[in-house]
Design a protein around this nucleic acid. Structure first.
Lengths: 363, 363
DNA sequence: GGTCCAACTTGGAACGTTCCAAGTAGGTCG
DNA sequence: CGACCTACTTGGAACGTTCCAAGTTGGACC
C-alpha cells in the first residue's frame, strides 16, 4: 500500500501558516483575529503566508475553544414575506462589514399545510448547536414564551416586532402607530370618513398599528366610524377579512390593511365583490414592499425603511454581544408614507369634505 | 473570591451523559449518532440520561473530529424571488426528515445597488468553513466557473438550473423547454400568432425556455413570427424588455415571459403603454409563484412543482454525499400549465383563427 | 470445561483552534 | 552596566467530539 500523502487535500492549518511565516501558532491566531498587539512586520509576514497557503480559519475548531464563534443567526418569521428579505439583506451587509461577523440565515418554517405556523424549535436548536453569538429575529415569530426558552441566554435583537417575553433583548421597530396615523391622515385628507382597519390581531406590531388607526380616527373626530376587522399578515387573511367586512353591510370607503400582503388580499376580495378600485374603495398597505410598487397593484403604503432597520438591528446586536447584560431597549424608526394609485381617488361623496389636516405637514 | 461553580451554566457534555448512564463516552457517542450496534437496554439508558440532562451534541466538536458535520448549505440565487422560497422550504422539510441532516440556508446577495449580481464568495466561504457536507444551489447563480472553484470537491445539487461547469453535480430542473411549449400551445390555441418571448439571455434555464418557445412556434408554423427579446429574471428586466418590444413597431398580441417576475414587469410596461390587458395583450409567466395567483395579476403560468423539485434535490444530495464520485445526473420534472386571466381573452382578430392544437390534450 | 466467535464496549489519540501564564527582546533609567 | 519595564511572543493545556484498535462479555459448540 502506498504511503498516504497528507499533502494536496488537507486544508492548511494554523500551524502550517506559523511554520511558513516562522512564528508560533499563537501569533498566527492573534493576527487572524485582528488583535492589535502584534508588531507590524510580523503581521504582514503572517498575512502573506496565510494568503499563499490559502488558509482559512477552521470555524469548528474556533468555536470549540473560543467563547465566540463569530457567527450570528437570523431567524425569519416568514421567508415568503418580501419585507423579511429586505431586512435580511441589509443585516447581511451590515454584519459582513463588521469584520469576522459571518451571517447565516435560517427560518421558521410555517408548518406547511396546517393552519398555525409553529415555532420550529429544531431550527433554533441547530443555531444554538452552531454556537451562534447572537440571534436576529425578523418579524413576528409565533409563541414567544417558547422562543425565549429555546434561545436561553443568547443575545437577541428583534426587528419589526416587539421584544416582549424576551429578557434583555433589543427591538427595532417601525413606529407602527405613527405610520398608521399617516395612513389615516392621508385617507381623511382625501375625503374618506368610513375608514376600516384590517388587523389588530396578534403581536405588538398588529396592536400598535391598530392603535395608530384608532388614535388618528379619533383625532379626526371619526371615533364613531372605527371598525377593526381581525386579520393576520398574510394575503389570504387580508382577503378573508375584507370579504367579511364588505359583506357586513356597514358602508366603507377605505380599507387600511396592516401590511402589503393583506392589502393585496383585500384588493382581490374587493374586486371579487364587484367593486371598482380605487374609485369605490381605497386600500392601503404597510411595509412598502415590491408588491406595493407593482403597477397593477400600485398600493399606497408606509415605508418603514426596512434596510435601515436591518442595519440598525445588526449594529445593536453587535453591541449586545459585547455587553449582554445591558437592559433591552426599543428603537422606533420613523416611517414615511408613499402614496400610490390605490388611494388616489377621492370617494364620490362631495361637499361634506373636510380640509386636509394641518398636522400632515409636520411629519 | 468565591469559588466559581461550573454547575448551572455549563452545557452538559457527552461525558456527563456517560457518567449518569454508567457507560463510556464512546457508547454515548454511538447512541447519539444512531449507530445500530448498541444493545437495546444500554441505548435506552443513554437516551434517558441525555434527556434528563438536556444534552445536545456540540456541533463544533463533532465537525472538528468527524468527517461529516451533518449539515447542508443552501445557496439561493435570489432571496427575493418567491420561487426560491418555495423550493427552500421543501428542501428544509425533506432534510429535516432525513434524521441528523440539519439545514441552514444562506444566500448570494445581489451586489445591492450595482447592476450585475456578483457571486458572493464570502458566503460560500463561510459555508465551507462550517464544513457543510453538501451544498444545494437554488436558481441560476452567476459566474459558474467561480462557483465551481469555490465549492471545491463539495457535493453539490443544483435546483432549477443546469449543473454545467460543476464536476459531478446533480441537477433538478423543470423541463423548461416542454413548459414553454405548453405556454405557446395555449396561446396559439387562444388564437394568438404574434407571440414574442421575453428571455433567452443567461444560463441554461433561460436558454431552454427560449428553445421551447422556438420549437413550439415552429411546430405551429409560426417560425416567421419568432421574436425573442433579451430579458433577465427580474421584474425590472421584464418591464424594460416589454417596453423595448412594444416600442419596436412590430405588432405583438402575446408576451411569453421567462418567469413570473418578468411577466409582472411586462404587464406594468404594457399598462404604461396604454394597452388594455388582457384584451389587447396576453402575458404569461413561469414558476406559478404566489404573484401569479394574485387576482390583480392573475397570471397564466407554468407550475414546475417547486416543492417536488426541492424534495427531490434534497434526496439527491443525500445520495451524493453517500457516494460523491457518482457521475452527475440531471432530473427533468414535467411542468403543468395553469391558465388564468392574463391569457384569458382571445385577441380581437376574428376569422383567421386556427382551431385548438390537438396536441394540447396529450399533455 | 475449554475455545472461539459474535456482539458489543471502551480508553486514548486525534481534530485545529483559543486562552493563559510564562516567557523574551529591546529599550530606559538610575 | 544592571535592573526594570513595556511590548510583544510563545508553548501547553483545554474545548467536546469521533475514530480506532484493542478490549470484554456471554453463549454456542465441541
Amino acid at each position: 500500500m502506498a504511503e498516504q500523502v497528507a499533502g494536496p487535500l488537507r486544508r492548511p492549518t494554523i500551524r502550517d501558516v506559523a511554520e511558513r511565516a516562522g512564528v508560533s501558532k499563537s501569533l498566527v491566531s492573534l493576527v487572524m483575529r485582528g488583535e492589535p498587539l502584534v508588531r507590524e512586520d510580523k503581521r504582514r509576514r503572517v498575512e502573506q503566508a496565510a494568503a499563499e497557503l490559502g488558509y482559512r480559519t477552521n470555524w469548528a475548531a474556533r468555536s470549540l475553544s473560543a467563547l465566540r464563534s463569530g457567527t450570528v443567526g437570523v431567524l425569519a418569521a416568514d421567508l415568503r414575506n418580501p419585507w423579511s428579505m429586505d431586512v435580511v439583506e441589509a443585516i447581511g451587509r451590515a454584519l459582513e462589514e463588521a469584520r469576522l461577523a459571518t451571517l447565516l440565515t435560517s427560518a421558521v418554517l410555517p408548518s406547511s399545510a396546517a393552519g398555525q405556523p409553529r415555532l420550529d424549535e429544531g431550527v433554533i436548536g441547530a443555531l444554538r448547536d452552531l454556537r451562534v453569538d447572537g440571534l436576529l429575529v425578523v418579524g413576528s415569530v409565533p409563541d414567544r414564551a417558547r422562543l425565549a426558552e429555546v434561545v436561553g441566554g443568547l443575545p437577541v435583537v428583534v426587528v419589526g416586532a416587539g421584544a416582549e417575553g424576551l429578557a434583555r433583548a433589543d427591538a427595532v421597530r417601525s413606529d407602527d402607530a405613527a405610520g398608521m396615523e399617516l395612513v389615516v391622515d392621508h385617507l381623511v385628507e382625501r375625503g374618506h370618513r368610513q375608514v376600516a382597519h384590517l388587523g389588530g390581531a396578534g403581536g405588538t406590531v398588529a396592536t400598535e398599528r391598530a392603535a395608530g388607526y384608532r388614535t388618528a380616527m379619533t383625532r379626526h373626530g371619526l371615533a364613531g366610524e372605527i371598525v377593526v376587522q381581525p386579520c393576520d399578515f398574510s394575503e389570504d387573511g387580508g382577503s378573508r377579512a375584507a370579504a367579511a367586512l364588505l359583506d357586513g353591510g356597514r358602508p366603507v370607503t377605505a380599507l387600511a390593511a396592516l401590511n402589503d400582503l393583506a392589502a393585496v388580499g383585500a384588493m382581490s376580495a374587493a374586486a371579487d365583490a364587484g367593486l371598482d378600485l380605487p374609485a369605490e374603495l381605497a386600500v392601503t398597505g404597510y411595509d412598502d414592499t415590491f408588491l406595493a410598487e407593482l403597477r397593477q397593484i400600485s398600493l399606497t403604503s408606509v415605508n418603514p425603511d426596512s434596510a435601515g432597520m436591518g442595519e440598525l438591528a445588526a449594529r445593536l446586536l453587535l453591541q449586545r454581544i459585547a455587553s449582554p447584560d445591558r437592559p433591552g431597549i426599543e428603537h422606533l424608526v420613523a416611517p414615511r408614507l408613499v402614496v400610490r394609485a390605490s388611494s388616489g381617488q377621492r370617494p364620490s361623496g362631495g361637499p361634506g369634505m373636510r380640509p386636509p389636516d394641518p398636522r400632515e405637514a409636520d411629519r
